[in-house]
């Protein structure tokens, strides 16, 4: 069985600035891993490479043995930023149904089975009854949950979650953890987060991303070390001295 994610010596730069250097990483099918690292360290870029939204400068990337631009259909992706027009006239149901755009029949309408499955996704994220509400009228946390429902509705083999708990309150986060614990048994999960409590509850496997990528076991890093990584978030120079070595050379200028 192939890996869910397989990066081999992948490099990526925005203009002249290297964002990811020599990334080799495997996430096996069935695993649940957390991805941590400072802002600007390349976490979102790594996800976008896996999704085929960005192309690596060199190196290979495979998603379930497919190239990313075809493999991405096996991925349920929850983006970090709500980058779309907040006033766009669309209901929550319509947003979730977009998860099966690739299965639309030629006449372009969703089937009753699709709608029933969409209702099920709403129930799983605790938003039953919100289906016909305008998406624009939801709070940030509710919007995030609709996007999670949309990702689940795609029947993914791999869930990529980019800081899904960034704007939700504690009770919602608790339900979300329960949902992930339940999903962990069925799908591969890669979770980008700054929430160490969440990491410790869900997984033993941590990917540290700061231009270079390293994999650790949470049990190998004691709580203090992990906390150091996170205090280093604000002071990036500390990052090099702790568990995830930072790339020594500065960004080259030509």
């Amino acid at each position: 069985m192939g890996a869910a994610l397989d990066f081999r010596k992948a490099n990526f730069r925005y203009r002249e600035v290297p964002v990811l250097v020599d990334v080799s990483l495997r996430v096996e099918e069935g695993e649940c891993v957390a991805m941590i690292g400072p802002n600007g360290g390349g976490k979102s870029t790594l996800l976008k490479l896996a999704l085929g939204l960005l192309k690596p400068e060199s190196g290979g990337i495979q998603v379930f043995d497919h190239a990313p631009h075809t493999g991405c259909r096996l991925i349920g992706y929850v983006p970090q930023h709500l980058h779309f027009d907040p006033k766009f006239p669309v209901t929550c149901m319509e947003v979730v149904l977009m998860g099966r755009l690739d299965r639309l029949p030629w006449w372009g309408r969703y089937s009753p089975e699709d709608r029933e499955a969409a209702h099920e996704s709403f129930r799983r994220v605790g938003l039953a009854g919100m289906e016909e509400r305008p998406f624009a009228s939801l709070s940030g946390g509710q919007k995030q949950r609709v996007l999670i429902a949309r990702a689940l509705f795609t029947d993914p083999r791999l869930l990529l979650l980019d800081e899904p708990t960034a704007n939700v309150d504690l009770t919602v986060e608790e339900r979300f953890v329960e949902l992930l614990e339940e999903l962990r048994a069925k799908v591969t999960i890669v979770l980008v987060t700054h929430d160490l409590g969440l990491v410790e509850r869900l997984t033993d496997q941590v990917i540290c991303v700061n231009r270079r990528v390293h994999r650790h076991r949470v049990s190998d890093l004691d709580g203090d070390t992990l906390r150091q990584i996170y205090s280093a978030e604000l002071r990036e120079q500390h990052f090099g001295s702790c568990a995830c070595p930072v790339d020594e050379e500065k960004a080259p200028r030509k």
């Binding site: 939204l53 991925i75 766009f88 319509e94 977009m98 755009l101 949309r150």
Partner: peptide
């Protein structure tokens, strides 16, 4: 009308539509 759903998705969330193979 025929392409209502994909057009709406492309207008609303281009990135996600692309990921769904649109």
């Amino acid at each position: 009308l025929f392409f209502y759903n994909p057009l709406m998705a492309v207008c609303f969330d281009e990135e996600f539509a692309r990921l769904r193979g649109v």
